[in-house]
């Protein structure tokens, strides 16, 4: 069920990264903010996905120190969740900055000026 959020979110941030690359001239100053924002978000979603996959595939059946291993994995999971939460905060803060900076006026493909 969690994959259902992480995989599309990773795809969206990767699409954002590619679009930021393609439209870097049009974006002007916002390009670097967009690069950083989508890069951090893609790293967070990708990291969460890799960790989740690893966590779900751990098989402790017949493990000598199963209890210790569970404690170790839980502690690591809590620590990683904090890193992912921090990454999300940084990524979305950069995204807010990128939205506010926006593409250069006048070079946008869509303009509100009917006279062009």
């Amino acid at each position: 069920m969690t994959y259902l959020q992480l995989v599309p979110a990773l795809c969206i941030s990767l699409v954002g990264l590619v679009l930021a690359c393609v439209f870097r001239h049009r974006l002007g100053r916002a390009a670097w903010l967009a690069f950083a924002a989508f890069g951090v978000l893609a790293a967070v979603y990708g990291g969460s996905l890799i960790w989740l996959h690893h966590f779900l595939s751990v098989n402790l059946f017949g493990h000598a120190n199963a209890d210790e291993e569970v404690l170790r994995l839980t502690a690591l999971s809590n620590r990683l969740h904090w890193w992912f939460a921090t990454g999300s905060v940084v990524g979305f803060a950069l995204l807010i900055a990128a939205v506010l900076t926006g593409p250069r006026a006048g070079t946008a493909g869509r303009t509100d000026d009917p006279t062009g």
Partner: peptide, 30 residues
């Protein structure tokens, strides 16, 4: 499921908002 869909649609909208053009500022030739 609803929270996941809201999150993804929101993320897609904000991603799109980075690339959507803006109104040229008044008094400035474009």
């Amino acid at each position: 499921l609803a929270f996941k869909i809201l999150y993804l649609v929101g993320l897609a909208c904000v991603t799109a908002a980075v690339f959507v053009g803006r109104k040229p500022r008044a008094g400035r030739p474009s």
